[in-house]
């Protein structure tokens, strides 16, 4: 999985979600569209939030939806969904969410490289807004692969 080769299928821009569940499901649907997971994984991502709360909102405006590896993960992958209207997830500091990333991995090891790349991009506090405003998949990929000088 490489961020600069993220397929268009897993990027959905300016989507509409009425609540956080719909937002997570949109991101899950994008993973399904990209052949990364089956629908069961989407529901497991929703369950993680139901069980543990909105901790997946890891920065202002940005959620990283995910669940444990499982048979419903076909290969490692990431999806990016931007929301036309930001949605509250119930996080005490980082609501509302305008960008939902969905991560699926086949094992707990081996996904560190892509997360380090994500950190490179999102350690820039302007990155979430830039993704939210993107109107093309190319613009999203450009932000995701923008590397900070500090690493």
């Amino acid at each position: 999985m490489r961020l600069d080769e993220l397929p268009d299928d897993v990027i959905e821009l300016r989507a509409r979600a009425g609540d956080w569940r719909q937002a997570v499901r949109l991101a899950g649907d994008a993973l399904v569209a990209g052949g990364v997971v089956t629908d069961a994984y989407t529901e497991r991502m929703v369950q993680v939030v139901e069980e543990f709360g909105a901790y997946i909102v890891i920065a202002p405006g940005l959620a990283l939806a995910h669940a444990r590896p499982g048979p419903d993960v076909l290969h490692d992958g990431l999806a990016v969904v931007t929301l036309d209207e930001p949605v509250a997830f119930g996080h005490p500091h980082n609501d509302p969410v305008e960008v939902v990333l969905a991560l699926a991995v086949t094992s707990t090891e081996g996904h560190v490289t892509v997360l380090a790349e994500l950190a490179n991009a999102f350690n820039d506090p302007t990155a979430t807004r830039a993704v939210a405003r993107a109107t093309t998949p190319d613009a999203v990929r450009a932000v995701l692969t923008r590397t900070q000088s500090e690493s």
Binding site: V48, I56, A67, L103, V105, T108, H111, L115
Partner: peptide
């Protein structure tokens, strides 16, 4: 919560 993703970041 899941030991992947957010904790890795």
């Amino acid at each position: 919560g899941a030991g992947i993703g957010t904790s890795a970041i």
